[in-house]
Simulated scan of single mutants.
Amino acid sequence: MTTTPAPAAASGTFLLGGDLPVHRLGFGAMRITGPGVWGEPRDPGEAVRVLRRLTELGVTFIDTADSYGPSVSERLIREALHPYPADLVIATKGGFTRPGPGVWLPNGRPEYLRQQVEQSLRNLGVERIDLYQLHRIDPAVPVEESLGELTWLQQDGKIRHVGLSQVSVAQLEQARAVAEIVSVQNLYNLADRTSEDVLAYCEAENLAFIPWFPIATGTLAESHGPLARVSRSHGATPSQLALAWLLRRSPVILPIPGTSSVAHLDENVAAASVRLSTEEFAALTRAV
């Protein structure tokens, strides 16, 4: 008897931290919360269905944060998927406080990060977090103190791997002098490549590069734009083409498109099977 590979498997595999194999097309769990990334989702049942559909589609990498809700995203993940499949890798983040909808304030104090790690462990129902990412470097706290605390938590067995979010190359190098960093999560997509130098660094060092806001396309998806033309030739949506471009752009890229809709999730994961030709990839790359 033969089995059909799960759709997400077509995106390929990356060895996160050298020991955690994940399918490269993952899922960002920010949008399963309420408006402004605050409170419960409008349709909690659909949020749970989205999360459960992930495993059916072969998605093995979920990215969340304690600030999504706050805590709502992590708790929903546990409700929908615990006990977790053996191949599922869950990443979370800490380093923001949320006094209200749409408000994000950095807090990298060691005692705060320890508190948030403990909270995430409880929310997710795990004894160790696969990947814990410093959500932002707090300009009021030396990065050596923030990452030093995460290193202690790693040594305590509460964190498996440490990552960063929205950093420059200089900040990444500074962080690597303090902790073993396995991933970077920066804003990056077809229309916004301001983190190109960070991606190049990650490629050279074989660090995972996790682009947030991965399906943004700007004006490229307009009816006469290059993305729209390529989309028509593939019978695919502009968002699917944007994800296909990321997957081809670098083997260290792990896109994490998010959604609160099962139908949209199916559409996003189908992008793993879209194959851009060399000419199409070059045309889209030149378009910005």
Rank of each mutant, 00 (worst) to 15 (best):
M1F: 15
T4I: 11
A8M: 03
S11V: 06
T13E: 15
T13F: 09
L15R: 14
L15A: 13
L16S: 08
L16Y: 04
D19Q: 15
P21R: 10
H23I: 10
A29E: 05
I32C: 02
I32K: 03
P35N: 12
P35F: 09
P35G: 11
G39W: 01
V50A: 05
L51Y: 03
L51R: 01
R52N: 00
L54M: 09
L54A: 11
T55K: 14
G58S: 10
V59K: 07
T60A: 05
T60S: 10
T60N: 00
F61W: 13
T64L: 13
A65G: 06
D66L: 01
D66R: 04
V72L: 11
A80D: 09
H82I: 11
P83V: 03
Y84M: 04
P85M: 08
A86E: 15
D87C: 12
D87A: 14
L88M: 13
I90Y: 08
I90A: 06
A91S: 14
A91Q: 04
F96I: 14
T97E: 13
G100N: 12
P101A: 10
P101Y: 04
G102C: 00
P106L: 00
G108P: 10
E111M: 02
E111G: 04
Y112I: 02
R114T: 04
R114C: 05
Q115F: 12
Q116C: 13
V117H: 04
E118G: 06
S120Y: 03
L124F: 03
E127W: 10
H135P: 08
V143E: 00
V143T: 12
E145T: 02
L153C: 10
Q154G: 08
Q155P: 00
Q155M: 07
G157S: 01
K158L: 14
H161A: 11
H161M: 06
V162T: 10
L164N: 01
Q166S: 15
V167M: 01
V169Y: 09
A170S: 13
A175M: 01
V178R: 00
V182K: 11
S183Q: 01
L187K: 14
A191I: 09
E196F: 09
L199W: 07
L199N: 09
Y201M: 08
E203N: 07
A208K: 02
F209D: 09
F209Y: 11
I210S: 03
W212F: 15
P214W: 02
T217G: 05
G218N: 02
L220P: 08
V230E: 06
S233K: 14
G235S: 13
A236D: 14
A236C: 12
L241A: 12
L243F: 08
A244Q: 11
W245D: 03
W245E: 03
L247N: 05
R249G: 08
S250R: 02
P251I: 07
P255D: 11
P257E: 07
G258T: 11
S261P: 07
S261G: 13
S261K: 15
A263W: 09
H264W: 12
L265E: 02
A270H: 03
V274C: 04
R275E: 14
L276K: 06
F281I: 00
R286A: 15
A287R: 10
V288C: 13
